[in-house]
């Protein structure tokens, strides 16, 4: 069984915010609610790196633990969903979440919270009918049900944001790390450059 995860590769993330608008696009998230955001540290200085952050669909999800109405479920795919019909908008998940994922739209009155809204891993809500008008209205698209992955990751400009089965993502990332390690090693000049290139590319006819 798949265990769905996001991973943002900070070496590749360029803070282009495609993930943010892709999410808005797919789920028609209103202004003021950002299911995904890109955080840049050391902004404008050497070492600047960005990370795209949303709900990380934790295994032991703090939001789920603290919810007073137990409105979260973890699907067999490992996606943490919540039920907007049950949600009371208390904000406890927001206090507990390490990633600032839960978002609360203005409720219109007295600046109180509306029902929580967060990344669904493009898996809609707990509704039984996938992509029913009701589900789309409340949670946005259910791409997993259509055999697709979250649009933010699918549209990532540099393929920094990865989404999918934890094992597959780990493999992709491991390959990148190996490549980078090799490159760093090369740059340091310890390995004969020609030899390494010969390994990488077959000899070209001249």
């Amino acid at each position: 069984m798949a265990r769905m995860k996001f991973y943002c590769d900070a070496e590749r993330c360029i803070e282009c915010n495609a993930c943010v608008t892709a999410c808005k696009n797919e789920n028609e998230v209103p202004m003021g609610v950002n299911r995904r955001r890109v955080v840049t540290i050391r902004d404008g200085e050497p070492g600047e790196r960005s990370l795209s952050v949303a709900c990380m669909h934790c295994s032991d999800a703090p939001c789920q633990a603290v919810c007073p109405v137990d409105c979260f479920i973890t699907t067999p795919d490992g996606v943490v969903l919540h039920n907007k019909d049950t949600c009371i908008g208390c904000g406890y998940c927001f206090y507990a979440c390490p990633f600032g994922a839960p978002q609360f739209p203005l409720d219109g009155q007295f600046s109180t919270r509306g029902k929580m809204d967060k990344c669904t891993f493009c898996n809609g809500g707990p509704e039984t009918a996938d992509n029913s008008p009701d589900e789309i209205r409340k949670y946005g698209r259910n791409r997993l049900a259509e055999g697709k992955l979250p649009l933010c990751a699918e549209m990532c400009s540099t393929k920094a944001l990865l989404a999918g089965d934890a094992g597959v993502i780990a493999d992709i990332y491991r390959k990148r790390v190996v490549n980078r390690g090799a490159n760093a090693y090369l740059a340091s000049g310890s390995l004969q450059k020609g030899a390494f290139e010969a390994l990488q590319t077959p000899p070209q006819p001249e």
Binding site: E28, P30, P105, G114
Partner: peptide, 17 residues
């Protein structure tokens, strides 16, 4: 819808219909 319309809105809903 007025009250509580904040959570999900606009043309998604329209499109769904």
């Amino acid at each position: 819808t007025g009250l509580g319309a904040g959570m999900m809105r606009k043309s998604r809903a329209a499109e769904a219909e």
